[in-house]
Simulated assay, not measured.
Amino acid sequence: MSLLVGIVGAGPAGLLLARLLHRAGIDSVVFESRDREYVERRQRAGILEQATVDTLRAAGAADRLEREGIPHDGIDLVFDGAAHRVDFLGTTGARVWIYAQTEVVKDLIALRVADDLPLLFDTPVLALTDLDGRPTVHHAGGQVVCDYVVGADGFHGVTRGLVPGVVHERTFPYSWLGILADAPPVHHELVYAHSRRGFALASMRSPTVSRLYLQVPNGTEPWPDDEIWTELDHRLGDHHPQRGPITAKSVLPMRASVAETLRHGTLFLAGDAAHIVPPTGAKGLNLAAADVTLLAAAFDHLHRTGSPDLLDAYEHTALREIWRAEHFSHFMTTTLHLAPGQSEFDTQLQLAHLRHIVSSRAAATSLAENYTGTART
């Protein structure tokens, strides 16, 4: 059975789906409203779960990841002024990789261009029609009639509003002030810090570039450099960052959302068009990859057998994984951050939970399973 799938959005979700479909012998057209330079420079997540890396490998899209990605076998939790390691590899047999979303996107674009497959930059989708039949993608240059359309164009994209249904949302009472700095990483693995001054996270983009975050009140403007470094020193315990030039600053609001309905006729939602997770659990890119892995398998099943059973099951199957990831991200967020006006009672509950994680193999394993994504496999 021949198929043509229209994919709206050339982020990691849309590009990975296009790659998986191509490997399965299924045609697709990718529509992207922005130009290639913008898409390849768009800064987002940088932590890949084991399952995401396995999918990229199976798709033939992991060559540079294998050379340049930084494997992490655990994380440090800092609380009560001390660091405690949570061992991922020893408890689950899985690890995570540091490899920026920009690099994943560049790799997938390069593969699609090399294969001379349709990837239409600077092509905003103006409308989608006939979603109950053969959907038509209308854009400024014309129109393309498809068999199915996948909306992977993000929270503010055109496709999300075409799928009726409730969207469950939560906004958190704090934000992240994030920086990129030309400085060696604080530690060889990620550091998540609970402090009475607020949360901090020390991550990295490479052995010479650090990615660091501070919890700040909503509505905060970026701080001066010296204030950022001083506050990181206070919050990260014994993991004192080495200072270097700060090359980028941004403030990221913390929110979560899940669309209750992921399908309308021949239109399916995936990635940020379907859900947003707070970044504390490192789930955004990985959850998008899980969505399109399910969709690719469903389209492959339809292509080979003519049966739409897996496509019909997509919404139910995906939402189970989405809510699992939302729960973990919510747990990490609310356990590590101090809410405005938080009572000492609530702070002690957070600390009790953190002490339990690092003193119980079962609790540490649960965190490791969720962080590496093995809890969803």
Rank of each mutant, 00 (worst) to 15 (best):
D312R: 04
A282F: 01
S33M: 14
S257Y: 05
R324Y: 02
G9T: 03
T123N: 10
T52L: 13
Q242D: 01
T92K: 06
T230S: 13
L162A: 04
V96E: 07
R19W: 04
I246L: 09
L214H: 06
A298V: 11
Q348N: 15
G133V: 08
L89S: 09
A352D: 14
D147A: 08
A127C: 06
V358H: 10
L89A: 10
H303V: 00
P308A: 08
E189W: 09
A256I: 01
L48H: 11
I75D: 04
R112L: 13
L310P: 03
L162K: 05
G46Y: 10
A140H: 10
Y371W: 08
A297H: 04
A59K: 11
Q215L: 04
I228F: 15
G306K: 10
E344L: 02
V125D: 08
T261E: 15
A83G: 14
P279Q: 02
T372H: 07
L126R: 15
A364Q: 09
I109S: 00
A24G: 00
L232C: 06
S175E: 05
Y38P: 00
E40F: 12
L15D: 03
L285C: 04
L201F: 15
E260I: 00
D73S: 14
V163Q: 12
P217H: 10
Q101W: 05
L126N: 11
D233H: 09
L232H: 02
V251K: 08
E231Y: 07
T261R: 15
G141E: 08
A288E: 03
Q101P: 02
P185L: 09
G178Q: 10
R361G: 07
K249M: 04
E49G: 14
I179R: 12
D346E: 15
L252V: 13
L131K: 05
V251L: 07
A152I: 09
V53M: 12
F328S: 02
G14V: 06
A127F: 00
H275G: 13
P124K: 12
L310W: 09
R263D: 03
S33L: 11
E321M: 09
G284M: 01
T280F: 14
H301V: 01
L267A: 04
A202V: 10
H327R: 15
S250Q: 09
H156Y: 11
D130L: 12
G219Q: 00
L294E: 04
D132G: 15
L214Q: 00
L180V: 07
L21F: 06
D153K: 05
D27H: 03
V78Y: 00
R34T: 13
R85S: 11
H194A: 13
L269A: 00
R95K: 12
R355D: 13
I246T: 07
A45W: 04
L236F: 14
A183P: 03
F331N: 07
